[in-house]
Amino acid sequence: MPNPIPHQKKELNQSQQLMIFVLSMSLFGIANIITEIVPEFSFGPVEFSVSYFAFIPLAMVFLFSPLPAALGAPLGEIIFADLLMGDFGGIGELEGFIEFALALYVAGLLVKNPNSRKQIAIASLVGVGIDQMLSTVVDIGKVWVGIEELEAVPGVPESILVLEGISFVNEMVISGVLFGLIPAMWLVPRLHGKIEPLMGFAPREDVSFRSAKEIVGARFLVFSVFFIFVGMISEFMAEMDVNFAVWQPEFIEQFGQQFLWVGVSAAIIVLILAVMGISYLKKSSSSGNPSRKAQ
């Protein structure tokens, strides 16, 4: 399978890649089983649940070569949580696989030094963000295709947009920050330097596993996913005559539309908080925080 990546500073041999792949697969698989058991809190259609423990695959792509780790994690989800639990979506799984693997690979390339909490935080948010944006795009597209003449059914396009918006914010906050960013910032520096000797190779350093070309590609991907997301949503709204963005007199009367703005502002607040937190961490880590390394 994964042929050695070109332009890579540190080449891993086939069995080392297999090792990373299997490790990432089993760990994320088991994490998915655990999330099935964690209780959910539903508040009407708004559901507060942990959909996945994003910190596990994120830690894997930050610590090891990103490609095998990024390919292993979604496969683990498919095999362990979906196939074995009878929740297999067939071709739909392929879509999830591509989205998640792409998001993880890009996140892994963004990290230069696994001891830098700032890099881990940014890469975690970008990783979960790409995954969620792509899945929103695909979800809306699916309903678009699945229901004939969708714009003729009053209420459905708006309701789908609102539900997708709520789930996007919910996933970013719960899976992205609470179970992605925070545990990853705790876990990755602790594991770095300890786990590699167990697997029989040297810890990741600045130059390992990434080349300038790949990083440019990763940044390009981040932007293109974002623009696809914005483009798709606005196209959907235009096609379906949904008027969220246009300020209309009766706008305030409609509770549901306010609801969407609540979601949007929540997302903006989270973003601002994240930026503030990151700059705070940057200050605290620059004031002398030696990296922890066993050995």
Binding site: G44, P45, V153, P154, G155, V156, E158, S159, V162, L163, Q254, F255, G256
Partner: peptide, 13 residues
């Protein structure tokens, strides 16, 4: 369906 009714849809939804 619940949210669709909310936005003034009916049972065609």
């Amino acid at each position: 369906i619940f949210t669709a009714l909310f936005f003034g849809g009916d049972l065609t939804a």
